[in-house]
Design a protein around this nucleic acid. Structure first.
Lengths: 230, 230
DNA sequence: CCCAATTTGTTCGTATGTATC
DNA sequence: AGATACATACGAACAAATTGG
């Protein structure tokens, strides 16, 4: 940063750094690993290789931030408080700005869960796929911060749903109402009606919040009633 | 994770890892550095020392995520789109739940910028301090996700304000209206009126968004008019 | 297809710094 | 004060990967 390096620029080779800083190879390499773990550089072997500055990828940033929340145990309420605030604004800001190709991309995601689930495995897959709808929607935002936050939160909710098995209690209402809200959302987006899109997504989030809260309670209940756990 | 380790647990010593994984000291050390850079472990020298699992701190998480946005150049609009969505909800969720000690802590922060700034340096300090008000407020939320996001965004806005010198064009209106909104917010929180708190903070954000947008435009304008820049 | 050069990756042995008992 | 148990650092050699001739 001090030298104004840009992505793509090469850092000095190990040998040069050993000379310049008067340190041993191992020490230099550990320092480079620290940068690499943060996603700031990548290294390649061979001639023309070396250590190169790299913009931190969204995946890396999400993984690193995920480590933080791994220790925080978020509740469904915590996550939906944010989703209820952010997602409606995303919808409003996208209304009338999406191409027909983008709108049909959303519909293509919805096609992945058009049919009701018949097994627990299908139930799980549908939960994940319906969260992907929101990630795809966020991808279309011109706001990098909003895009990252919504995608990150959808991913985290995905992981929590799987790890806590919140998909386990079969719930056709969750699936059916979700489908309904999402198709009404695409219609509002296509019509360019921002206020309608905001309201549809607000309803979607409130409804999902309520139903996921019930799933969470059902799973907790089931654990509590398992003999020998408590 | 696979072995169910908890914060405070010790990882095997370097010597043990060398044996267990059949790798050399340098390789093991690089691996540990990768974990350390992510904030997942800390290492101490000496007897009783070693590598210990550590919950990722908020500071570390914010720094790592900040690396991502370093490459994204956010605009004032991007940041305020999020602030306008999140901060009013934070206010509403806190109304009537704060102790008198917490309410006076907020007032104590406000005291740091009770007087109008007389120099550019004071102007800068007041910008930072008034963002600290929001960080302190977020600290009082029971939602770890909301807490982190608001504090992170306030910090980032702080950095952007300083690095782009958005405090440079003197703007007494920004200061005066900010003070006004914040004291009305504390009153609404004290009264336990969530809807009022939400509305005050919504107004605060919309107003700050408008004025910071003007600051951004003024700075851009000033750069454009500097001879020799373009 | 192979060979040579370049650069990171890995290993081993040794020495040093640091905190605890 | 000294022994012990750790991480930290150094240096030389070797291995693996990639590129270009």
């Amino acid at each position: 940063m001090a030298e104004g390096c840009q992505p793509g620029d090469r850092l000095p080779s190990e040998a040069e750094m050993i000379d310049r800083f008067g340190m041993a190879k191992g020490t230099i390499r550990e320092a480079i690993r620290i940068l690499e773990a943060q996603g700031l550089v990548r290294s390649r072997t061979g001639p023309g290789g070396g250590v190169f500055i790299h913009p931190v990828s969204e995946e890396r940033a999400a993984a690193l931030l995920g480590n933080y929340f791994y220790f925080q145990q978020l509740s469904i309420d915590d996550i939906y408080q944010i989703r209820e605030a952010l997602e409606p604004e995303l919808a409003a800001s996208l209304a009338g700005r999406l191409s027909e190709a983008q709108l049909s991309a959303l519909e293509a995601v919805m096609a992945d869960y058009a049919e009701p689930a018949r097994t627990a495995e299908e139930e799980r897959a549908q939960h994940i796929a319906s969260l992907r709808f929101h990630a795809v929607l966020a991808e279309m935002s011109g706001n990098p911060l909003l895009r990252f936050l919504i995608r990150f939160i959808a991913n985290m909710l995905s992981e929590i749903t799987v790890s806590r098995q919140l998909y386990a209690p079969p719930n056709p209402e969750l699936w059916k109402s979700g489908m309904d809200y999402q198709s009404r959302l695409v219609a509002a987006l296509r019509a360019g009606d921002g206020d309608a899109a905001r309201e549809v997504l607000r309803g979607h989030m409130k409804n999902a919040h309520r139903l996921m809260g019930l799933q969470e309670a059902a799973v907790t209940q089931r654990f509590l009633s398992e003999p020998g756990i408590i």
